[in-house]
Simulated scan of single mutants.
Amino acid sequence: MKHRHLLAIPALLAVLGAHAQERTTDPLAPLAQCINRSAFQFKTQDRLPASATTRIVKMNAGERRVSTADGYRLMLFRKSSLPFVNLKIERSADGQFAADRETIVAQMQQMSASSKPPHQVPLETDARQGVEVLGLNNASIAQAQGIISLYSLLHAASGTVATAYLLNQPADPRDFATDAQYQALRDQFLASLVSCMADPAQ
């Protein structure tokens, strides 16, 4: 049976509206523009409606909420006509980042714990340039249908959360054909995202 644990995350795929309501500021615009200057670029960007101030996170013990003062959904492409990353960037509400982080970390831990041998998915953690990185990776692209890896990145200094779904590309043309090629692209993307979250103005 193919591993599907990383696919069973509909709660994270919050619906982002295609039409933004009027706002006086756009705090995530520099981050989105920085990402678009990397090797991974978006063709469209959907902004979270101003009325959507939270998103639901489903946990074993019940639903929890993460604040979303603002947000974008970016479908990122490299050279292929197929998307490589479904990326959400969100800004926590004032004073809510610590609570949002606690919920996101707990969810990532729960998803890792729910994976079973022989396809266990350990939670990988790292910190770079002031950005906390939490990752769940299928062992091989052959085991993944749809989502190969899921990453949550947290930048406390700006109150920014990024959720990245790295996508398999089952048909030609594709950006990678082997695990090694995928991992190289994954690491390149993460390095770019971390760098932009740490300093969007670069």
Rank of each mutant, 00 (worst) to 15 (best):
A106H: 01
V57C: 08
M59K: 12
P122M: 04
D100T: 10
P170A: 10
F176M: 08
S51K: 02
L87G: 03
A69M: 00
E63K: 10
L123H: 11
T68Y: 05
D26E: 10
H3Q: 14
C196T: 12
Q169N: 07
A52P: 00
M108L: 13
A106Y: 09
T44Q: 14
R47D: 01
P27C: 03
T160F: 12
S195R: 08
K2Y: 03
L74Y: 05
T125A: 10
L12M: 15
A98L: 05
A69H: 07
S195V: 07
I56E: 12
F84M: 12
M197K: 03
R37F: 07
L193K: 02
L190K: 06
G71R: 03
S158P: 05
D100Q: 06
S158C: 04
Q109Y: 05
Q169Y: 09
S81L: 14
G130H: 02
P170Q: 06
G146T: 08
Q129F: 04
R91H: 06
L12Q: 13
D46G: 02
L12W: 10
A142N: 12
A29F: 00
A20Y: 01
Y182M: 13
R55G: 08
R64Y: 04
S195A: 15
A14V: 09
L28I: 07
A142F: 10
R23E: 01
G135W: 04
L167D: 03
F97V: 06
A139E: 15
M75C: 01
L31T: 15
L185M: 15
G17V: 00
L12A: 09
A50D: 00
Q21W: 02
L6H: 00
A142G: 06
E90R: 09
R101C: 07
A177P: 01
R174K: 14
S38L: 11
L48H: 00
A201E: 11
